[in-house]
């Protein structure tokens, strides 16, 4: 059983295809890292899969009715928007019909270590804390699948690792997670699978150790990396920019 199946998903902007015939599926237990350079089509892929933007091809999520979709997948957009100084508890409870005592809400607040902030206005928190509040909101939706667009951007190293571990735990509990990421080191270390996208096309898909090769990193990202298998696992450290031929 897959949580998301995408078949030949294509998004055109004018004559250019920003997403070109993407196909993959996500099974329970997978934490998929979606990597690729700026403008490769990572956000477009996630949005089209959710049905937020019109696309050709098939996506099992986009096909669902608008009422059924929030139960199937939660979405964490890149823009971290909190428009009003509502309390953290209220913001997270939006995922559960404003019921602040719902077990899903309490569990999400606990998991993101936010119980102490529950009654504080969300806009008064620091950027990193706000990011955690928004992740908690997505977790409180209690869906089998979570889609996140650059969830670690702007977080300090500890919270980047914490967020990745949270997602990995969700996957180990039998859910599915797909997150677009820029940090190859985090992606290699925490994801169970990587999908590499370049100029709108999926160019590689598989376990991190198989996907991250010197050739691929040079071709897709135009960088030279140190790839090292250590007792701690795979370590990826970008070293230098390669001039494109």
């Amino acid at each position: 059983m897959s949580l998301l199946t995408v078949q030949d998903l294509t998004v055109r902007r004018g004559s250019r295809a920003t997403l070109d015939q993407a196909s993959f599926s996500i099974a329970p237990g997978e934490f998929v890292g979606l990597i690729g350079p700026n403008g490769a089509g990572k956000s477009t892929l996630l949005r089209a899969a959710l049905g937020l933007i019109p696309a050709a091809g098939r996506s099992s999520l986009a096909r669902l009715s608008p009422a059924a979709r929030p139960k199937a997948a939660a979405w964490l957009p890149q823009a971290r928007e909190i428009a009003w100084p509502v309390s953290v508890a209220h913001l997270v409870s939006l995922a559960q019909n404003e019921n602040q005592n719902a077990p899903e809400v309490i569990a999400a607040l606990n998991r993101m270590d936010l119980m102490a902030y529950a009654q504080r206005p969300a806009t008064g928190l620091s950027g990193g804390e706000q990011a955690r509040v928004l992740i908690a909101r997505a977790l409180a939706q209690d869906t089998p699948l979570l889609l996140a667009d650059e969830p670690t951007a702007g977080l300090d190293p500890a919270h980047q690792i914490g967020t990745m571990q949270t997602f990995a735990t969700l996957a180990s509990e039998g859910r599915g997670v797909i997150a677009s990421l820029h940090d190859l080191g985090l992606a290699a270390r925490h994801c169970t699978r990587l999908i590499v996208i370049s100029e709108g096309r999926i160019v590689a898909d598989g376990a991190p150790r198989n996907v991250l090769t010197e050739t691929l990193l040079a071709e897709v990202f135009a960088i030279r990396c140190l790839l090292s298998d250590t007792p701690e696992g795979l370590v990826v450290q970008p070293l230098a920019q390669l001039s494109k031929p």
């Binding site: 949005r47 959710l50 937020l52 608008p66 009422a67 979709r69 929030p70 997948a73 939660a74 979405w75 964490l76 957009p77 823009a79 928007e81 909190i82 428009a83 009003w84 509502v86 913001l91 939006l94 995922a95 404003e98 928004l134 909101r137 939706q141």
Partner: peptide
Amino acid sequence: LDRLTLGEEAAASMGVN
């Protein structure tokens, strides 16, 4: 309107038409 506090995309993903 309550869900729009999180922005248009998040609201749409939570079932707001």
